[in-house]
């Protein structure tokens, strides 16, 4: 008989060791960064709702090529959320999604570039990305709590882990898809690696990378409900409470709020991706 390999114990030990060893990193993140995003969210919720609705409407108008579909949807949708008394929750959710996506992109794009430049890095990163995406999202909550306690920071942390893979993959793909002839042309004119990257590859890969960013934003939004289990405030929290108390109406309304936010963010980021000369 072979005794069960104590993988779970090892992981426990590893996480505990990391917690004590890296507390000098985790603690400032937990405290300072936590304070920062919380006060950002709080500040956002003090801004009158109509100001933000107007702002979103203006952004939507210009970004969708001066058409009114997205504008009308945004105004009605946001007004509805405010009307349901979920405005503050919406602001917290948005802040969480915003920071989670921002960090994902800041980490993901360089990693994607690195992957595209090196076959070794690609073969190491691919299984890690698979792992990050297929591991049930709930699992990330546990170390998140151990490292960062409860609240918004562990929510952002677990969202980043869950939502970074698409932007990494799409960046890698986008750069690898740049046609050989263009890469050759860049080389033939004597570009350095950096010039080639910034003047040819990234501009060429922009659309693909933006599609990855869009995916990342959507994934971190989907993480919002899950992150509410570790005390991340926002619409997800309302969904969770409604679930616990079996209040289907409240749950539906909060869920609808998330859907509205998702559609607005999705359409805006997608429109960012359109060409000027198209």
């Amino acid at each position: 008989m072979v005794a069960g390999i104590p993988v779970a114990d090892w992981i426990d030990a590893l996480v505990e060791w990391m917690q004590t060893t890296f507390s000098f990193i985790f603690d400032p993140i937990k405290n300072d960064f936590g304070d920062f995003i919380e006060s950002t969210a709080e500040w956002l919720s003090t801004v009158p709702a109509w100001v933000i609705i107007a702002l979103v409407a203006i952004i939507a108008f210009f970004i969708s090529g001066k058409r009114f579909g997205l504008v009308i949807f945004s105004v009605i949708g946001l007004w509805f959320v405010s009307n349901q008394g979920l405005w503050e929750e919406l602001m917290f959710t948005f802040t969480l999604v915003f920071f989670a996506s921002l960090i994902s992109v800041i980490i993901g794009v360089p990693v994607g570039i690195w992957m595209s430049k090196s076959r070794v890095v690609q073969s190491i990163m691919t299984p890690i990305l698979d792992f990050m995406q297929t591991m049930p999202a709930f699992v990330y909550l546990i170390p998140a709590v151990v490292f960062f306690g409860i609240g918004m920071v562990p929510g952002v942390f677990s969202s980043v882990v869950f939502a970074t893979p698409p932007v990494v993959r799409f960046t890698n793909l986008g750069i690898r898809q740049v046609s050989d002839e263009l890469v050759e042309a860049a080389d033939a004119f004597g570009t350095t690696g950096k010039q080639k990257l910034f003047k040819v590859e990234l501009p060429m890969a922009r659309k693909t990378i933006m599609a990855g960013v869009n995916q990342t934003v959507m994934l971190s939004l989907s993480m919002v409900v899950i992150a509410s289990m570790i005390g991340a405030p926002g619409l997800g929290d309302n969904v969770l409470t409604a679930l616990e108390r079996a209040r289907e109406g409240e749950g539906f309304v909060a869920g609808l709020g998330i859907v509205i936010l998702a559609i607005i963010i999705d359409r805006i980021t997608q429109n960012l991706n359109k060409d000027k000369n198209e």
């Binding site: 002839e181 050759e184 042309a185 033939a188």
Partner: peptide, 13 residues
């Protein structure tokens, strides 16, 4: 040396 390519290889952006 400069090169001219079969499929032009112009940068579309």
């Amino acid at each position: 040396m400069s090169m001219v390519f079969q499929k032009f290889a112009l940068f579309p952006f």
